[in-house]
């Protein structure tokens, strides 16, 4: 009797969960974008989601929820029901929340639906800067300590990771680091001469570089980039960078851990198909992003590897508030 009840209950729950997944979505899905309207994350998400909507046969209402380096949005979704009706549309930042003391939740509380694309970092300089490549910049810093102004976007942002990478490879840099609240304003300041050098994502600077409004110093990668041929990779100047590269920010769609598996796979299927849409592929290419379109275990291991590498890089550069060890983030290769 007991067995029967358990069997019936589990059959029922199986059935309902299958039924839920079958009907899904029965109402609008809400997509919370971690960053502001008009930013890279926003553009990527708004470009891919309509294609996913077509596959899903539902509506995804996208909203920007900014603040706390994206933590406000992440916590918001983490506090909602895991019913598959709230998607988190974010970038790489949450993987550093724990070590940067910005929150106690990160993507380990979520299931990746799709890691859409990855960006490449590039060092750009104001046109009037007295050097034309990475080697020239290092020589200038050595000759003029405390004079070069490098833009940053706060601890844990892309510029801070790139700077940490350079310091790990080349040793301490005596420069002035000027904080901006995003790479857009910082690149504007670069063109106006308020800062001399900016580590930025390729996509945000590619148009200005092509127009000659700023000059590229080095691509932060092991090979030159197909969208910007002629700009040397940073490993051409110093082999030491190879240990940490390729590295770059990424964009992904997530749902809360505990969401019905059938719903997760339905969403994964939808986004996987959407990411192959030609318009989206072209958009990513024109912005200099490398398309990834991975999910499941592949995405999970990408996230783990990214978190390990970057956390320990920042830890070794003395930029973290808490050691990655405290959160069980293993040193890469261990």
């Amino acid at each position: 009797m007991k067995k029967f009840v358990i069997g019936a209950v589990s059959a029922l729950s199986l059935m309902t969960s299958a039924a839920i997944a079958q009907d899904y979505p029965t109402k609008e899905i809400q997509g919370i974008i971690q960053w502001g309207a008009g930013g890279s994350t926003d553009t990527v998400m708004r470009a891919v989601t309509p294609h996913a909507e077509d596959v899903l046969g539902g509506t995804v209402v996208m909203q920007n929820m900014t603040g706390g380096v994206g933590a406000i949005a992440l916590n918001h979704v983490a506090n909602e029901d895991a019913d598959g009706y709230k998607l988190l549309m974010g970038a790489e930042n949450p993987l550093l929340y724990k070590v940067m003391g910005l929150g106690d939740k990160d993507y380990s509380d979520f299931v990746p639906i799709n890691i859409l694309a990855r960006g490449t970092a590039i060092l750009v300089a104001n046109n009037d800067a007295p050097f034309d490549d990475y080697a020239g910049m290092m020589a200038y810093i050595a000759e003029n300590p405390g004079e070069l102004r490098i833009g940053s976007t706060g601890p844990g942002g892309l510029p801070s990771v790139v700077t940490a990478m350079i310091e790990t490879v080349e040793g301490e840099l005596d420069v002035i680091s000027i904080p901006y609240d995003g790479d857009g304003p910082a690149l504007t300041a670069l063109q106006g001469g308020a800062i001399d050098v900016m580590p930025a994502v390729l996509g945000a600077s590619i148009e200005a570089i092509k127009a000659g409004n700023m000059k590229p110093l080095a691509i932060m990668d092991t090979t030159a980039n197909e969208y910007l041929p002629g700009v040397p990779a940073v490993t051409d100047f110093n082999e030491g960078f190879a240990t940490y590269l390729p590295w770059g920010p990424f964009f992904g769609v997530f749902v809360k851990q505990g969401t019905d598996e059938a719903i997760v796979s339905k969403l994964q299927g939808a986004y996987a198909e959407a990411a192959t849409n030609q318009d989206f592929v072209d958009l990513m290419a024109s912005r200099g992003f490398t398309l990834m379109n991975i999910s499941g275990d592949e995405a999970q291991s990408f996230l783990t590897k990214w978190q390990q590498g970057t956390s320990w890089l920042l830890q070794d550069a003395g930029l973290t508030k808490a050691s990655p060890e405290e959160f069980g983030i293993a040193r890469p290769g261990e």
Binding site: T26, Q30, T59
Partner: peptide, 20 residues
């Protein structure tokens, strides 16, 4: 404006979807 207001006891999102 697709502002998702707190639904509470009325399943208004499902109703809208039904009409859609």
């Amino acid at each position: 404006f697709s502002v998702l207001i707190p639904a509470g006891i009325i399943p208004e999102a499902e109703i809208i979807q039904f009409f859609r």
